[in-house]
Amino acid sequence: MAPGKKHSNPKAKISSEPAQPPPNWPIFKPLLPASDLSLETVVDSQIIELPLTTTPGKPKKDEALRVNDRFQVTDEAFANRLWIETGLRELICGNGESEDEGEEVMGEGERKELWGGEPVGLNPKIRIYRYSKGQFFGQHYDESNVMTLNTKPTSTPVKTTWTILLYLTSPATGCQGGETVFYPDDLPGKKNVLEKEIVIGLETGMLLLHKHGNECMLVSILV
């Protein structure tokens, strides 16, 4: 997530959903040191994985066909915990890189170009999706959001640039399906970064990051 310019968004949608209190989130288990974790690039500057264990006529936006169960809550405290307590901040901001011989370390300018600016945190809007047999999330594009983070000592205007998916189930837990699929894009005037479909299998606890907004690839969830 990168800082954005201060301006109003006339197209912003006003949610009619009633405010919900944040749930009693579970305590995170002890973590590996950030230096023992790594980001794995699936598609350069577009798709990045943070594995659970360390190892050496298409639809317009908001028009995807989706059949699933969804829980949504705005929880700044939980978003901040995900950002800080999981080692994600160190990986994204470059404070926890391994110094193994021969490993390339990304510079500050490269990181800003990759993430779309200076990363400052996560969107506090948390969504949990559950897919039952026969349910799915059709081909779609994820949009960017312009918002303000309640950072200290002053608030920070930001624009989201990446989607983060955290998988809660996997084939090891009896789950069948649920893969995230990225497709070659043939929209006029848009650069196509894929030559064929890429399917990302799920593993409990794995993070998947993919760029959204104007550079979002066509994506779907299969079940």
Rank of each mutant, 00 (worst) to 15 (best):
residue 2 A to D: 11
residue 4 G to P: 14
residue 5 K to P: 00
residue 8 S to Y: 08
residue 10 P to F: 10
residue 10 P to M: 08
residue 11 K to A: 12
residue 12 A to N: 10
residue 14 I to R: 15
residue 16 S to T: 15
residue 17 E to I: 14
residue 19 A to S: 12
residue 19 A to R: 13
residue 22 P to Y: 00
residue 23 P to H: 04
residue 24 N to P: 02
residue 24 N to I: 00
residue 27 I to V: 13
residue 27 I to K: 14
residue 28 F to S: 00
residue 29 K to M: 04
residue 29 K to Y: 04
residue 30 P to F: 11
residue 31 L to H: 13
residue 31 L to W: 09
residue 35 S to G: 04
residue 38 S to A: 08
residue 40 E to N: 08
residue 43 V to W: 08
residue 43 V to M: 05
residue 45 S to G: 07
residue 46 Q to E: 12
residue 47 I to F: 10
residue 49 E to T: 14
residue 57 G to F: 09
residue 60 K to W: 00
residue 64 A to P: 02
residue 65 L to Y: 10
residue 67 V to F: 04
residue 75 D to K: 07
residue 75 D to L: 02
residue 76 E to T: 13
residue 78 F to R: 15
residue 79 A to Y: 09
residue 79 A to Q: 09
residue 81 R to E: 11
residue 83 W to F: 09
residue 85 E to P: 02
residue 86 T to S: 06
residue 88 L to K: 08
residue 89 R to L: 04
residue 91 L to R: 13
residue 95 N to C: 00
residue 97 E to Y: 14
residue 98 S to K: 12
residue 99 E to A: 06
residue 101 E to N: 02
residue 103 E to T: 11
residue 103 E to F: 03
residue 105 V to P: 03
residue 110 E to I: 01
residue 111 R to A: 03
residue 116 G to H: 02
residue 116 G to R: 01
residue 116 G to F: 00
residue 119 P to H: 06
residue 122 L to P: 07
residue 124 P to T: 06
residue 125 K to M: 03
residue 129 Y to W: 03
residue 130 R to C: 01
residue 133 K to T: 14
residue 137 F to I: 07
residue 138 G to H: 10
residue 138 G to T: 11
residue 138 G to P: 09
residue 139 Q to H: 10
residue 140 H to G: 09
residue 141 Y to C: 01
residue 141 Y to P: 01
residue 144 S to C: 12
residue 146 V to W: 07
residue 149 L to V: 12
residue 150 N to F: 04
residue 151 T to A: 12
residue 151 T to H: 13
residue 155 S to K: 14
residue 157 P to A: 03
residue 159 K to W: 00
residue 161 T to G: 05
residue 164 I to R: 07
residue 167 Y to L: 02
residue 169 T to P: 04
residue 169 T to S: 15
residue 170 S to C: 05
residue 170 S to E: 05
residue 172 A to I: 03
residue 177 G to Q: 05
residue 178 G to A: 05
residue 181 V to F: 04
residue 185 D to L: 02
residue 191 K to I: 10
residue 200 I to F: 02
residue 201 G to H: 10
residue 201 G to A: 08
residue 203 E to T: 13
residue 204 T to V: 05
residue 210 H to Q: 10
residue 211 K to L: 11
residue 212 H to S: 08
residue 212 H to V: 07
residue 212 H to L: 03
residue 219 V to D: 01
residue 221 I to K: 07
residue 222 L to C: 06
residue 223 V to P: 06
